[in-house]
Amino acid sequence: MNGFTAFFKKELLEAIRNYRVLILFSVTAIFGMMSPLTAKMMPDILANVGVEGMVLKIPEPTFIDAFTQFFKNFSQMGTVVLLLVFGGLLSQDLAKGTLIIPLSKGLSRHAVILAKYASALTLWTLSYALATLINYGYTLYFFQTISVSHLFFSLFCLWLFGAFLLAFLLLASVVTRGAFGGLLVTAAGLGILLICQAIFRMDPFNPLKLVSENVALLTGKAAFDQLLNTAWSTCALILSTLILAMMLFKKKSI
């Protein structure tokens, strides 16, 4: 067993004992169940809060509404949850000094970064797959038909954004000090991306596009090719972020 697999196993075990697994899986399961339900219940909810003398005309909800809710939940609350759950992924180890002993025993520094990223990505992938399956099943039950093109790619974009977020979080944790440094820098980075998207219209390479165009892609209002380019550039961004994190971590004094 080499350093990577040993550290990877330790990371997964730590995630279970830290309640990370519990939180991530229950929250994503809640999102998966809630989204189609909210879409289905929306007309009834609005009918109950209706104001006297006002007639609300609401179109019958479709499966598109269920996926709209799903993408909205995941791109807003989901991002926050992901950041909170994995915020201390590397920062906390650095702040407590728990990495000193394994590193002095010969564990390579690259293995630390890669194993941490791999374990976080595994958890994110599994929980997201769970949410997607639940959401798909519920939507199928409530609305009978799901006929849409690019559904898988649209879901994949959201997953890719999560992967990008985790890579960025690792890099931010390497650069900063303190238990919450990485979390704060990542939040600031997201803010900058938002500003880039809203004000400077730097669309083609902005990873945020991956989570803002999902529904438009489903309804055919967004171009598939453009989003594919963004996906590729995000992949490149993830790779370069990881390499940069490994290079910087090698030089960092712990």
Partner: peptide, 27 residues
Amino acid sequence: MIQDYLPFLIPIIALELILALTALIHI
């Protein structure tokens, strides 16, 4: 109306309760 959705609401409420209970026990 709420009865129609009850079977779907219960798992959500149960999961939220599990989260809150785990945190409470830890506290």
